[in-house]
Simulated assay, not measured.
Amino acid sequence: MGFRLKLREPLSDGLKRVFREQIQSALELCRHPAKQRGVTAHEVRKHLKKLRAAMRLAIGEVGKNQHAGEDRCVRKIGRLVSDLRDAQVRLQTLIQLRDETRKRSGEDSFPGIEELLALERESFSAAFAGWQKQAIPQLERVEARLLKWPLENLTWKQICSAVEKIYKRGQRGLAKTIGDPDPENFHAWRKRVKDVWYQLRILQPLKRKF
């Protein structure tokens, strides 16, 4: 179906379909992991981020408390693999830098650091072995609860309000980052940009309604 609503689809049905598709995609990856190292963790995290962005669109109808409770559950699932994924990214980044340096100088650079990062990745892989088995029942429970959210009276005004709030948070984050270009500020701002991007992707087919 794609990560989007459809023109002739009731709003509540469409949003719940998006919830279900993202969770089912994450479940499929957990049940049938990719052979390439790190791919499964990365793709599962992407689906969870999309799910959380979609959930925020319903906050005006379900309320802050109910949304916050389910959001915490989804974040908890994401944390099962966040350290493993971060370790993989650090190693991949160093390998890319090493390859670029080798092209220019003909020498292998950072051998000690590369070995340490590889050991870090293996350590996390061992520590989080079997994370998929932990994630599957948690995802199934989240799906069951989200599909029971009372969204029949969800309105476009509530949807637009949710997007506006995230957009304003992004604006504040950008201003903070410009004033203090700290890596943490960039990271926080980047998350808000992704939230808006995901939400606009969900709503993009309906742009004629606005």
Rank of each mutant, 00 (worst) to 15 (best):
residue 162 A to G: 04
residue 123 S to L: 07
residue 149 W to K: 05
residue 147 L to R: 14
residue 161 S to R: 01
residue 155 T to I: 06
residue 138 Q to L: 15
residue 132 Q to C: 12
residue 171 Q to M: 13
residue 176 K to N: 07
residue 124 F to A: 11
residue 147 L to V: 04
residue 126 A to S: 09
residue 163 V to S: 00
residue 163 V to K: 00
residue 160 C to E: 05
residue 109 S to I: 13
residue 169 R to I: 08
residue 152 E to G: 00
residue 178 I to D: 03
residue 120 E to M: 10
residue 147 L to I: 07
residue 149 W to N: 01
residue 178 I to Q: 07
residue 112 G to K: 11
residue 109 S to Q: 12
residue 116 L to Y: 07
residue 176 K to R: 15
residue 131 W to H: 04
residue 119 L to S: 07
residue 128 F to H: 06
residue 177 T to K: 15
residue 176 K to I: 13
residue 160 C to H: 08
residue 118 A to N: 13
residue 139 L to N: 01
residue 115 E to H: 04
residue 138 Q to K: 14
residue 140 E to H: 00
residue 181 P to S: 05
residue 170 G to H: 06
residue 157 K to C: 02
residue 180 D to C: 15
residue 187 H to P: 01
residue 155 T to A: 02
residue 113 I to T: 11
residue 128 F to G: 08
residue 162 A to P: 00
residue 188 A to L: 13
residue 109 S to F: 11
residue 109 S to D: 12
residue 128 F to V: 14
residue 183 P to S: 07
residue 156 W to L: 05
residue 182 D to S: 11
residue 129 A to C: 10
residue 176 K to E: 08
residue 128 F to K: 13
residue 134 Q to E: 13
residue 121 R to G: 01
residue 155 T to P: 00
residue 182 D to L: 10
residue 137 P to D: 01
residue 132 Q to P: 01
residue 165 K to A: 09
residue 153 N to Q: 10
residue 126 A to W: 01
residue 179 G to F: 01
residue 186 F to D: 09
residue 141 R to C: 07
residue 177 T to R: 14
residue 118 A to G: 14
residue 166 I to C: 14
residue 125 S to I: 05
residue 154 L to W: 06
residue 146 L to Q: 09
